[in-house]
Design a protein around this nucleic acid. Structure first.
Lengths: 151, 151
DNA sequence: TGGAGGAAGTTAACATGTGTAGTAAATTTC
DNA sequence: GAAATTTACTACACATGTTAACTTCCTCCA
């Protein structure tokens, strides 16, 4: 009989709790994104570019969207095909690719944003405004303090 | 000029905060899993079976690991090949597949568990024991209260 | 100054995630 | 008791996660 040493209950582990919470949150947004034929990751890219309000190089964009470079590369190819972003080589450093939201891409974001905000407000309402902000603060603090490699 | 309506800053959104926090947490465990040639998802399955301490049907296992049935199906095929789990048809309900941790699988878990617990303790130490428990409690509460479809 | 070493990005290969459709066994319904 | 429904799993298609290899370009220093 191979007995397993004491481990905390699976369902109560931090990684599972985070995954479960994210799953719950994303259930609000998935139908909206599906309506507009956007994956979660594609939306993250459009969102990050909107928030940056300027061109970003691929590395910076990867960091902000928490995507790996190879994934981002493919995603950008798709978004470029659909006309939502433009890619240009940085003239000051030709290794870098500058990514910018196109007018069509901005239009797409503008079309989705209101409904997205409505869903976010729904989450706030259900969970409680104060609780949500406390959770966010706790998450940010965790990311700051626990990051083993704050690159 | 297509102006985008007010949206909360991308980096402060709940889905990104959850993703970022999970990313930070997983950075502790990935090297350990890689050493043992296990993906995150495979480990979730082994962990869930260990925690259950009994055979689970595929549906229940999918629910507990937050995996979709098609993903779980493939993962189980791989774990079966490696001899970590066994799959048998439930004699009392032949629709169901019962999944059980094999002795070899249990041995594998037993080999990883101590180091995993050590890493978990490291996170507790860095972030603070109280803060971590508060965060976990908040995450569980969010999952309970905000789930739009508590199946 | 030019070549070694490093950095940025892409491509490739394989596994998993996600959604849709299909299949088989059990259950329900009439 | 047979058709319709339910339940669980499987098959397939496409997108992403992950690692490694490769290309091109930049930096730096002997």
């Amino acid at each position: 009989m191979t007995s397993v040493p004491e481990m905390r209950p699976f369902a109560e582990s931090l990684p599972m709790a985070l995954l479960q919470a994210r799953e719950v949150a994303m259930r609000y947004f998935r139908p909206l994104l599906a309506e507009h034929d956007l994956t979660e990751q594609q939306w993250r890219v459009l969102r990050a570019l909107t928030s940056a309000d300027d061109a970003l190089d691929a590395g910076e964009l990867a960091a902000r969207t928490l995507l790996l470079a190879p994934s981002l590369s493919r995603i950008l190819a798709h978004l470029d095909e659909r006309g939502f972003v433009t890619r240009t080589i940085d003239p000051t450093d030709q290794r870098r690719t500058l990514v910018e939201l196109s007018p069509l891409g901005a239009k797409q974001v503008a079309q989705i944003a209101p409904e997205s905000e409505r869903l976010y407000a729904e989450i706030e309402a259900v969970f409680g405004d104060g609780e949500l902000h406390a959770l966010l603060e706790s998450l940010h603090q965790f990311a700051r303090k626990a990051d083993p490699d704050p690159s």
